[in-house]
Amino acid sequence: MESTFLQWLAEPGLTHYLMVSAILFSLGLLAVISRKNVIMVLMGVELILNSANLNFIAFSRFTELALDGQMIALFVIIIAAAEAAVALAIVLNIYNRFKTINLNEISLMKG
């Protein structure tokens, strides 16, 4: 058991990468939920996107998906770039309107 676990540790496979991706995802989620600053939230979103990408590429390496996984990862990067540009433009607009970028202070839709 002991040696099996060490051997498992010594041979990084699909599961290892998936676990890294899971930890990255959780950290990104934490950032998105708990940080006040919009830009921090955006950075958390980037982290989540990267964890997803890591999953894709890991699957493309270790399963029959082959290069399709990488291709999807490429498109995710493209979309992330577009998202970042638009999101930052929105942030600038929010800043112009509310003179703050703290999400807890922006609650016009309070019921």
Partner: peptide, 8 residues
């Protein structure tokens, strides 16, 4: 993971 945690 370390950098990500630091960031968060």
């Amino acid at each position: 993971v370390g950098s990500a945690a630091y960031m968060v």
